[in-house]
């Protein structure tokens, strides 16, 4: 549920919001300073200083030590598996998320409102519960006879579960606002349904599809709770990076844990910066 507020686009220049902000004059600078000071202090004590200490701690004993910590066989296996699984999860989300958004906007069938509400369930459900429900259906006691527990496919399934809303919720509003005149014009000029989709609809959706995919990717990279139960935490096989960090903390190897955490932070940062660039590129194309 965390990100469904974040994906809402900021108001465009010229919207009432932007106008109100530009006109705002009344605040007293003393009040601003006090408020800013408190906000920065709060963020620093809880978020910024602790994260800075993680990065500092990872480089504490030199870059060589950092590199050795990241490339220990189990940590490296966890990192590569996490990135690989996240790429697969992001790609499946790109396709399935777009299809689900399409069906929710353009199709009509009974119960559509319920389906639309259900999409947000993975954000509302605690991650440990997400892992448990998947294990109930796809675990050793599966009524379907499919046992994905302790397998890499099981981990991918858990990641697909928790990232489901991202692409749907970024593509859906764009699709809702899409002007259908162009599609009708294309159709009346003899374009096939597929041609209309590829030439008219898809170009408008691509920025939203890509930002949803990037968000799903960052979430997958960082995911912990949903994979704990279904992965069985097997090093070299199903252990994801976050679980590897967790076992290093439990084993009192804080420097090693900090090194892998730093790698995760860097990957997330790169993904988010690319996302920001994508959104600017998207808004420039109008």
């Amino acid at each position: 549920m965390t990100t469904d507020t974040a994906v809402r686009p900021a108001p465009a220049p010229g919207s009432p919001g932007a106008g109100a902000r530009a006109r705002s004059r009344f605040p007293v600078s003393g009040g601003t300073a006090l408020g800013l000071g408190s906000a920065v202090l709060y963020m620093s004590l809880i978020v910024l200083i602790p994260l800075a200490v993680v990065v500092w701690r990872s480089a504490d004993q030199g870059l060589g030590y950092f590199w050795r910590a990241v490339t220990t066989p189990d940590a490296w296996a966890a990192l590569t598996f996490t990135v690989g699984a996240s790429v697969i999860v992001a790609l499946i989300n790109l396709v399935m998320g777009t299809i689900i958004a399409w069906v929710l906007v353009r199709d009509r069938f009974p119960g559509k409102g319920i389906v639309d509400t259900l999409i947000d369930l993975p954000f509302a459900l605690p991650t440990i519960v997400a892992g448990l429900v998947l294990l109930a259906l796809y675990g050793p006691e599966s009524p379907l006879g499919v046992n994905l527990a302790y397998s890499r496919i099981g981990v991918v399934l858990a990641l697909l579960f928790v990232t489901l809303p991202f692409v749907v919720r970024t593509v859906q509003p764009v699709l809702l606002e899409l002007d259908r005149d162009m599609e009708q014009a294309a159709a009346s000029l003899g374009a096939s349904a597929f041609q209309t989709f590829r030439r008219i609809i898809l170009p408008n959706l691509v920025p939203a599809m890509l930002s949803g995919t990037a968000l799903a990717f960052t979430r997958s990279i960082a995911e912990f709770g949903s994979t704990v139960l279904i992965s069985g935490n097997l090093p070299f096989k199903t252990q994801v990076a976050a679980v590897n960090i967790f076992s290093q903390i439990e084993g009192d190897n804080q420097t090693g844990a900090a090194a892998i955490s730093t790698v995760l932070l860097i990957v997330a940062l790169v993904a988010l910066i690319s996302l920001d660039l994508l959104q600017r590129w998207g808004s420039r194309r109008g």
Partner: peptide, 17 residues
């Protein structure tokens, strides 16, 4: 920023401080 950080990293960061 907190949304991009793995929950485990959050825990580690707080332990370190």
């Amino acid at each position: 920023l907190p949304m991009a950080v793995s929950p485990v990293v959050v825990g580690l960061a707080l332990i370190l401080v």
